[in-house]
Simulated assay, not measured.
Amino acid sequence: MTEKQALLTMYRKHNEYMVAGDIDQLGALLADDFHLVHMTGMVQSKQKWLSEIKSGQMHYFSSTEEQVTVTELTATHAILVGQSQVDARIHGSRNTWPLQLTLQLSMLDGHWLIRHIDASMY
């Protein structure tokens, strides 16, 4: 498997675990200093995002991938942009959003980890 394929697989696992509510597997993909910037501008740490998934404050019903591209790749850094239709209930409001996630990944201890995600609509 090439590095690019490994990153694509990681992105798909991220979405799979998010929808399954599997915070242990999802958390294993995230660096300790991970931050997510939601499309509203709200910034969440790894711990806060995972706790809101666990509590049901953020519940992802489905994520249907439309396009995903690795836009930058070096030995230690990568940027991946994925576009999906995401059906979710966020703090009580349910909708299907055309969600673009821009993932910044770093190679740490021989493994790719997601360090940062910027979420926006496309």
Rank of each mutant, 00 (worst) to 15 (best):
W97T: 10
H116R: 13
F61M: 12
D22P: 01
T96G: 08
E16L: 08
V81A: 03
G110T: 11
V43E: 12
T64W: 00
G82H: 00
T2G: 07
D87K: 09
H35A: 03
L36V: 10
T40R: 14
L26N: 02
E3C: 11
Q25S: 03
M10F: 14
L80Y: 00
A119H: 03
M39R: 12
S84Y: 08
T2W: 11
D87P: 00
V19H: 11
Q83I: 12
M58D: 08
G41Y: 01
H59F: 02
S62V: 11
Q85C: 02
H14W: 13
L50Q: 04
L108H: 05
L7D: 07
T40G: 04
T40Y: 01
V19D: 02
Q85I: 01
H35R: 13
T69N: 13
S55P: 12
H38K: 14
Q85K: 06
Q25E: 03
M121K: 02
D22K: 03
V37T: 13
K48C: 04
G82T: 05
W97P: 00
H38V: 04
R89I: 11
T9E: 15
T64N: 13
R89M: 15
A88C: 05
H77N: 10
Q104H: 13
Y122M: 12
V43Q: 07
A78D: 03
Y11C: 05
I53W: 07
W112N: 00
S55T: 12
I114R: 05
H77D: 12
W112F: 00
L73T: 10
Q100V: 07
L103Y: 13
L36W: 15
L108Y: 01
L108M: 11
L101P: 01
S55W: 15
D118K: 02
H38W: 15
H91V: 05
F34M: 03
M1F: 13
V19A: 00
Q5E: 15
N15T: 10
V70D: 11
L29V: 13
E66Y: 13
S55V: 07
H116P: 05
G110A: 07
S55K: 12
T69D: 15
H14P: 01
S120P: 04
Y11P: 01
D118A: 09
D22M: 07
E3Q: 15
M10R: 07
D32V: 06
L36R: 06
Q104T: 14
T96H: 03
Y60S: 08
K54R: 14
V37W: 09
G21K: 08
V43T: 10
T74E: 00
S55M: 14
G92I: 04
F34A: 01
Q5F: 14
L8D: 03
H77E: 11
Q47P: 08
T64V: 10
L30H: 03
A119F: 01
G82F: 05
T71G: 10
T74S: 15
V86C: 04
Q100L: 02
R12M: 06
Q67M: 14
E66K: 06
L30V: 06
P98D: 01
Q44G: 06
L8S: 11
A88P: 06
G56S: 09
E66Q: 11
D24M: 13
T9S: 12
I117C: 11
H59E: 07
H38C: 08
I114P: 07
T76R: 02
D87G: 07
Y11A: 10
Y11E: 01
